[in-house]
Protein backbone atom coordinates (compact mmCIF):
# COMPACT_ATOMS: atom_id res chain seq x y z
CA UNK A 1 0.00 0.00 0.00
CA UNK A 2 2.80 2.35 0.92
CA UNK A 3 4.43 1.40 -2.35
CA UNK A 4 1.32 2.46 -4.24
CA UNK A 5 0.91 5.71 -2.34
CA UNK A 6 4.56 6.59 -2.73
CA UNK A 7 4.34 6.11 -6.45
CA UNK A 8 1.09 8.04 -6.56
CA UNK A 9 2.69 11.03 -4.89
CA UNK A 10 5.75 10.95 -7.15
CA UNK A 11 3.42 10.70 -10.11
CA UNK A 12 1.44 13.74 -9.00
CA UNK A 13 4.58 15.81 -8.67
CA UNK A 14 5.85 14.91 -12.11
CA UNK A 15 2.34 15.13 -13.51
CA UNK A 16 2.10 18.70 -12.27
CA UNK A 17 4.93 19.59 -14.58
CA UNK A 18 3.21 17.97 -17.54
CA UNK A 19 0.02 19.72 -16.49
CA UNK A 20 1.67 23.12 -16.51
CA UNK A 21 3.06 22.62 -19.98
CA UNK A 22 -0.26 21.23 -21.19
CA UNK A 23 -2.06 24.21 -19.69
CA UNK A 24 0.03 26.59 -21.74
CA UNK A 25 -0.62 24.55 -24.83
CA UNK A 26 -4.39 24.53 -24.38
CA UNK A 27 -4.36 28.22 -23.61
CA UNK A 28 -2.61 29.04 -26.84
CA UNK A 29 -4.86 26.72 -28.79
CA UNK A 30 -8.07 28.03 -27.31
CA UNK A 31 -7.20 31.66 -27.83
CA UNK A 32 -5.43 31.55 -31.16
CA UNK A 33 -6.26 28.24 -32.83
CA UNK A 34 -2.55 27.51 -33.11
CA UNK A 35 -1.50 23.92 -32.41
CA UNK A 36 1.88 24.66 -30.91
CA UNK A 37 4.22 21.74 -31.48
CA UNK A 38 7.05 23.75 -30.00
CA UNK A 39 5.50 23.76 -26.53
CA UNK A 40 7.86 21.06 -25.24
CA UNK A 41 10.83 23.02 -26.55
CA UNK A 42 9.62 26.10 -24.72
CA UNK A 43 9.93 23.99 -21.58
CA UNK A 44 13.57 23.34 -22.44
CA UNK A 45 14.08 27.06 -23.11
CA UNK A 46 12.70 27.83 -19.66
CA UNK A 47 15.17 25.43 -18.07
CA UNK A 48 18.10 26.92 -19.96
CA UNK A 49 17.00 30.48 -19.17
CA UNK A 50 16.94 29.54 -15.49
CA UNK A 51 20.39 28.07 -15.86
CA UNK A 52 21.65 31.32 -17.36
CA UNK A 53 20.06 33.33 -14.59
CA UNK A 54 21.69 31.16 -11.95
CA UNK A 55 25.06 30.34 -13.47
CA UNK A 56 25.82 33.38 -15.62
CA UNK A 57 24.12 36.20 -13.74
CA UNK A 58 24.52 34.56 -10.34
CA UNK A 59 21.08 35.53 -9.18
CA UNK A 60 19.61 34.02 -6.05
CA UNK A 61 17.03 31.35 -6.76
CA UNK A 62 13.90 33.42 -6.18
CA UNK A 63 15.14 36.27 -8.35
CA UNK A 64 16.25 33.84 -11.02
CA UNK A 65 12.78 32.37 -11.23
CA UNK A 66 11.22 35.80 -11.63
CA UNK A 67 13.77 36.77 -14.26
CA UNK A 68 13.18 33.55 -16.17
CA UNK A 69 9.42 33.98 -16.08
CA UNK A 70 9.64 37.56 -17.31
CA UNK A 71 12.03 36.58 -20.08
CA UNK A 72 9.72 33.75 -21.10
CA UNK A 73 6.76 36.11 -21.25
CA UNK A 74 8.64 38.46 -23.51
CA UNK A 75 9.74 35.56 -25.68
CA UNK A 76 6.16 34.40 -26.04
CA UNK A 77 5.01 37.86 -27.07
CA UNK A 78 7.83 38.08 -29.59
CA UNK A 79 6.97 34.68 -31.04
CA UNK A 80 3.42 35.82 -31.59
CA UNK A 81 4.49 39.02 -33.30
CA UNK A 82 7.20 37.56 -35.45
CA UNK A 83 5.98 34.07 -36.29
CA UNK A 84 2.27 33.69 -35.74
CA UNK A 85 0.77 37.05 -36.53
CA UNK A 86 1.99 36.98 -40.12
CA UNK A 87 0.55 33.50 -40.45
CA UNK A 88 -2.95 34.46 -39.35
CA UNK A 89 -5.61 33.20 -41.67
CA UNK A 90 -3.33 30.58 -43.18
CA UNK A 91 -4.57 26.99 -43.29
CA UNK A 92 -4.02 24.87 -40.19
CA UNK A 93 -1.33 22.74 -41.80
CA UNK A 94 0.79 25.76 -42.61
CA UNK A 95 0.71 26.95 -39.04
CA UNK A 96 1.46 23.47 -37.72
CA UNK A 97 4.49 23.26 -39.98
CA UNK A 98 5.64 26.61 -38.69
CA UNK A 99 5.48 25.36 -35.10
CA UNK A 100 7.41 22.25 -36.07
CA UNK A 101 10.06 24.39 -37.73
CA UNK A 102 10.16 26.55 -34.62
CA UNK A 103 10.67 23.43 -32.52
CA UNK A 104 13.66 22.36 -34.63
CA UNK A 105 15.17 25.81 -34.55
CA UNK A 106 14.90 26.02 -30.79
CA UNK A 107 16.48 22.60 -30.32
CA UNK A 108 19.32 23.44 -32.68
CA UNK A 109 19.88 26.84 -31.12
CA UNK A 110 20.06 25.41 -27.61
CA UNK A 111 22.72 22.90 -28.63
CA UNK A 112 24.76 25.57 -30.38
CA UNK A 113 24.58 28.02 -27.50
CA UNK A 114 24.93 25.64 -24.58
CA UNK A 115 26.67 22.62 -26.01
CA UNK A 116 25.34 19.10 -25.79
CA UNK A 117 26.36 18.38 -22.22
CA UNK A 118 24.05 17.90 -19.32
CA UNK A 119 24.03 20.99 -17.16
CA UNK A 120 22.73 21.43 -13.69
CA UNK A 121 21.45 24.36 -11.69
CA UNK A 122 24.24 25.55 -9.37
CA UNK A 123 21.61 26.39 -6.77
CA UNK A 124 18.26 24.72 -6.62
CA UNK A 125 14.93 25.02 -4.98
CA UNK A 126 14.85 23.43 -1.55
CA UNK A 127 14.86 19.67 -1.86
CA UNK A 128 15.00 18.39 1.67
CA UNK A 129 13.15 15.21 2.52
CA UNK A 130 9.81 15.42 4.24
CA UNK A 131 8.35 12.37 5.97
CA UNK A 132 4.58 12.07 6.34
CA UNK A 133 3.97 8.84 8.19
CA UNK A 134 5.67 6.14 6.18
CA UNK A 135 5.61 8.28 3.04
CA UNK A 136 8.74 10.11 2.01
CA UNK A 137 8.40 13.24 -0.06
CA UNK A 138 10.90 15.62 -1.45
CA UNK A 139 10.25 19.24 -0.55
CA UNK A 140 10.78 19.93 -4.20
CA UNK A 141 7.86 17.66 -5.12
CA UNK A 142 5.65 19.55 -2.72
CA UNK A 143 6.76 22.91 -4.04
CA UNK A 144 6.04 21.82 -7.59
CA UNK A 145 2.59 20.52 -6.74
CA UNK A 146 1.83 23.62 -4.72
CA UNK A 147 3.01 25.91 -7.50
CA UNK A 148 0.92 24.11 -10.06
CA UNK A 149 -2.17 24.46 -7.92
CA UNK A 150 -1.44 28.15 -7.50
CA UNK A 151 -0.84 28.62 -11.22
CA UNK A 152 -3.98 26.82 -12.28
CA UNK A 153 -6.07 28.68 -9.75
CA UNK A 154 -4.52 31.96 -10.76
CA UNK A 155 -5.30 31.34 -14.41
CA UNK A 156 -8.80 30.19 -13.64
CA UNK A 157 -9.42 33.37 -11.65
CA UNK A 158 -7.79 35.42 -14.37
CA UNK A 159 -10.13 34.03 -16.97
CA UNK A 160 -13.23 34.28 -14.93
CA UNK A 161 -12.84 37.64 -13.30
CA UNK A 162 -10.56 39.94 -15.21
CA UNK A 163 -11.48 41.99 -18.23
CA UNK A 164 -8.56 40.62 -20.23
CA UNK A 165 -9.58 37.10 -19.29
CA UNK A 166 -13.09 37.80 -20.51
CA UNK A 167 -11.73 39.21 -23.74
CA UNK A 168 -9.66 36.08 -24.25
CA UNK A 169 -12.65 33.83 -23.68
CA UNK A 170 -14.74 35.86 -26.09
CA UNK A 171 -12.04 35.90 -28.75
CA UNK A 172 -11.51 32.17 -28.40
CA UNK A 173 -15.18 31.49 -28.84
CA UNK A 174 -16.07 33.88 -31.62
CA UNK A 175 -13.29 36.04 -33.03
CA UNK A 176 -15.58 38.00 -35.35
CA UNK A 177 -18.06 38.95 -32.67
CA UNK A 178 -15.18 39.84 -30.38
CA UNK A 179 -13.73 42.18 -32.99
CA UNK A 180 -17.11 43.84 -33.42
CA UNK A 181 -17.26 44.43 -29.70
CA UNK A 182 -14.03 46.34 -29.75
CA UNK A 183 -11.72 43.55 -28.59
CA UNK A 184 -8.22 43.81 -29.98
CA UNK A 185 -7.58 40.21 -30.96
CA UNK A 186 -3.93 40.88 -31.59
CA UNK A 187 -3.42 41.90 -28.00
CA UNK A 188 -5.35 38.85 -26.85
CA UNK A 189 -3.17 36.54 -28.93
CA UNK A 190 -0.02 38.14 -27.61
CA UNK A 191 -1.14 37.63 -24.04
CA UNK A 192 -2.11 34.05 -24.78
CA UNK A 193 1.29 33.26 -26.22
CA UNK A 194 3.02 34.99 -23.36
CA UNK A 195 1.15 33.04 -20.74
CA UNK A 196 1.56 29.82 -22.69
CA UNK A 197 5.31 30.31 -22.84
CA UNK A 198 5.48 31.25 -19.17
CA UNK A 199 3.75 28.05 -18.07
CA UNK A 200 6.09 25.99 -20.22
CA UNK A 201 9.07 27.84 -18.77
CA UNK A 202 7.86 27.14 -15.24
CA UNK A 203 7.64 23.48 -16.18
CA UNK A 204 11.22 23.74 -17.38
CA UNK A 205 12.38 25.32 -14.15
CA UNK A 206 10.78 22.53 -12.16
CA UNK A 207 11.99 19.77 -14.40
CA UNK A 208 15.50 21.19 -14.42
CA UNK A 209 15.39 21.17 -10.65
CA UNK A 210 14.15 17.58 -10.52
CA UNK A 211 16.86 16.34 -12.78
CA UNK A 212 19.39 17.88 -15.18
CA UNK A 213 19.17 20.44 -17.94
CA UNK A 214 19.82 18.86 -21.28
CA UNK A 215 18.51 18.91 -24.83
CA UNK A 216 16.38 15.87 -23.98
CA UNK A 217 14.09 18.10 -21.94
CA UNK A 218 12.33 18.87 -25.21
CA UNK A 219 11.33 15.24 -25.48
CA UNK A 220 10.01 15.11 -21.97
CA UNK A 221 8.00 18.19 -22.82
CA UNK A 222 6.35 16.20 -25.59
CA UNK A 223 4.52 14.24 -22.91
CA UNK A 224 2.38 17.29 -22.47
CA UNK A 225 0.52 16.34 -25.66
CA UNK A 226 -1.01 13.13 -24.36
CA UNK A 227 -1.97 15.14 -21.30
CA UNK A 228 -3.75 17.65 -23.49
CA UNK A 229 -5.53 15.02 -25.50
CA UNK A 230 -6.66 13.10 -22.42
CA UNK A 231 -7.86 16.19 -20.67
CA UNK A 232 -9.68 17.59 -23.66
CA UNK A 233 -8.16 19.91 -26.20
CA UNK A 234 -10.14 22.91 -25.08
CA UNK A 235 -10.31 22.45 -21.37
CA UNK A 236 -7.84 24.20 -19.14
CA UNK A 237 -8.58 22.25 -15.98
CA UNK A 238 -8.71 19.18 -18.19
CA UNK A 239 -5.15 19.70 -19.35
CA UNK A 240 -3.90 19.81 -15.79
CA UNK A 241 -5.86 16.71 -14.85
CA UNK A 242 -4.55 15.04 -17.98
CA UNK A 243 -1.02 15.90 -16.94
CA UNK A 244 -1.52 14.50 -13.46
CA UNK A 245 -3.00 11.32 -14.90
CA UNK A 246 -0.10 10.83 -17.29
CA UNK A 247 2.41 11.42 -14.50
CA UNK A 248 0.69 8.96 -12.19
CA UNK A 249 0.29 6.35 -14.92
CA UNK A 250 3.97 6.67 -15.73
CA UNK A 251 5.06 6.13 -12.15
CA UNK A 252 2.64 3.33 -11.41
CA UNK A 253 3.55 1.39 -14.52
CA UNK A 254 7.26 1.90 -13.84
CA UNK A 255 6.66 0.56 -10.36
CA UNK A 256 4.41 -2.38 -11.11
CA UNK A 257 5.69 -3.35 -14.51
CA UNK A 258 8.83 -2.36 -16.27
CA UNK A 259 10.24 0.83 -17.66
CA UNK A 260 9.50 -0.36 -21.15
CA UNK A 261 5.88 -0.97 -20.37
CA UNK A 262 5.37 2.52 -18.97
CA UNK A 263 5.10 4.16 -22.38
CA UNK A 264 2.80 1.44 -23.62
CA UNK A 265 0.52 1.88 -20.62
CA UNK A 266 0.45 5.64 -20.95
CA UNK A 267 -0.43 5.64 -24.60
CA UNK A 268 -2.87 2.76 -24.27
CA UNK A 269 -4.63 4.75 -21.59
CA UNK A 270 -4.65 7.68 -23.93
CA UNK A 271 -6.18 5.59 -26.68
CA UNK A 272 -8.80 4.19 -24.32
CA UNK A 273 -9.88 7.65 -23.22
CA UNK A 274 -10.12 8.78 -26.83
CA UNK A 275 -12.17 5.75 -27.84
CA UNK A 276 -14.62 6.12 -25.00
CA UNK A 277 -14.71 9.87 -24.90
CA UNK A 278 -13.26 11.46 -28.03
CA UNK A 279 -13.43 14.96 -26.69
CA UNK A 280 -11.17 14.11 -23.79
CA UNK A 281 -12.23 13.91 -20.17
CA UNK A 282 -13.34 17.49 -19.81
CA UNK A 283 -13.50 18.71 -23.36
CA UNK A 284 -16.66 19.78 -25.10
CA UNK A 285 -18.25 17.31 -27.55
CA UNK A 286 -17.58 19.53 -30.51
CA UNK A 287 -15.75 22.76 -30.84
CA UNK A 288 -17.90 25.30 -32.59
CA UNK A 289 -16.00 27.63 -34.84
CA UNK A 290 -17.95 30.20 -36.76
Amino acid sequence: MIFFLQLLVSGLAVGSVYGLVALGFVLIFKATDVFNFAQGDLLAVGAYLMFVALAVFNLPVALAIIATVVAAGILGAMLQRVVFKPLQGQPLLTVVMATIALSLIIQGALVIIFGSQDLSFPRTLPSSIVAIGALRLSMLDLIIMGCSVVCVSAFALFFRYTSLGLQMRATAEHPEAAALSGINSDRVFTVAFSIGTVTAALGGIFLGSLQVVSPTLSQIGLLAFPAVVVGGLTSIPGSVIGGLLIGVLQQLSAGYFDGAVASVVVYSGLLLVLLLRPQGLLGRPSVQRH
Partner: peptide, 14 residues
Protein backbone atom coordinates in the same frame (compact mmCIF):
# COMPACT_ATOMS: atom_id res chain seq x y z
CA UNK B 1 14.92 -1.09 -16.43
CA UNK B 2 14.67 2.69 -16.42
CA UNK B 3 13.15 4.78 -19.19
CA UNK B 4 15.47 7.36 -20.70
CA UNK B 5 12.83 10.04 -20.35
CA UNK B 6 11.77 9.14 -16.83
CA UNK B 7 11.56 12.16 -14.59
CA UNK B 8 11.64 10.27 -11.32
CA UNK B 9 13.48 7.18 -10.15
CA UNK B 10 11.21 6.58 -7.18
CA UNK B 11 9.61 3.48 -8.68
CA UNK B 12 12.98 2.05 -9.68
CA UNK B 13 14.57 2.60 -6.30
CA UNK B 14 11.61 1.18 -4.43
Amino acid sequence: LMDATATSADAIVL
